[in-house]
């Protein structure tokens, strides 16, 4: 059976992953403040929709405000909300809307987060807060949805998949003591293959609440 997959988020890594994930993949890129509890239902009910159920939801919704460095003392409250609070709430609303559909299929939710959440990064405080919140949201979903046979995971990715190259380089230089142990970063196809595996009930049905770091062995978080 072909897996029905919803990818939430614009730009990379959402767009890159949508092109590599297996199955019937639909990518949507809403504004964070547009996402309400009916957002997922709306996608499935829309005329001409490409999915009629959900086996996998990949959440990677990061507004441009989250990806643009700024010192905290220079941020307005509106910018903070756009960079952290709105996308955090959007993720929660996506999860609420997806629950019923994932329960029907014994599906999987995967949130993709940048490494700056676990490692910290100057001038990316809102992004780091958002990332850590999403990483633990996945754990909470795993705990509360396990009895519905829904699994949830977080996949932590290198900052270069979220940030302009100069910002990613600065974040890595300030946080990583080591170069990637594999001497390269994983390709998007390799990341998508891991997410495919996480959604594959034949091989990973006993796995939930995982927090996988796919950075080529740069950081090796505990």
């Amino acid at each position: 059976m072909t897996r029905d997959v919803l990818v939430v988020g614009g730009g990379d890594p959402a767009a890159a992953l949508a092109s590599e994930l297996s199955g019937n993949v639909v990518q949507v890129a809403p504004e964070a403040e547009e996402v309400d509890d009916g957002f997922v239902d709306g996608l499935l009910r829309a005329d001409g929709t490409e999915v009629d159920g959900l086996d996998l939801v990949v959440h990677a919704l990061y507004p441009q405000q989250s990806r643009t460095p700024a010192p905290v003392e220079e941020m307005t409250a509106d910018r903070w909300a756009a960079a952290c609070d709105d996308p955090l709430e959007a993720a929660i609303r996506v999860a609420r809307g997806a629950h019923r559909h994932l329960a029907d299929r014994h599906g999987t939710m995967v949130v993709c987060v940048p490494l700056v959440g676990a490692a910290g990064a100057a001038n990316l405080v809102a992004l780091a807060g958002l990332a850590e919140g999403l990483r633990v949201l996945a754990r909470s979903l795993a705990r509360s949805w396990g009895s519905d046979q829904i699994r949830a995971h977080a996949v932590t990715l290198h900052p270069s998949l979220f940030l302009a190259s100069e910002h990613a380089e600065a974040a890595v230089e300030a946080t990583a003591l080591h170069d990637p142990a594999l001497v390269r970063l994983p390709s998007v196809a390799e990341i998508a293959a891991v997410i495919d595996a996480l959604a594959d009930g034949r091989t990973t049905a006993g796995l939930t609440g995982a927090s996988l770091v796919m950075d080529g062995g740069t950081w090796m978080a505990g």
Binding site: L88, G120, V125, G129, L130, E132, G133, R135, V136, L137
Partner: peptide, 11 residues
């Protein structure tokens, strides 16, 4: 979730 967010902010 929001308590985790604060940990990211702290770091």
């Amino acid at each position: 979730t929001v308590k985790a967010t604060q940990r990211g902010i702290v770091k």
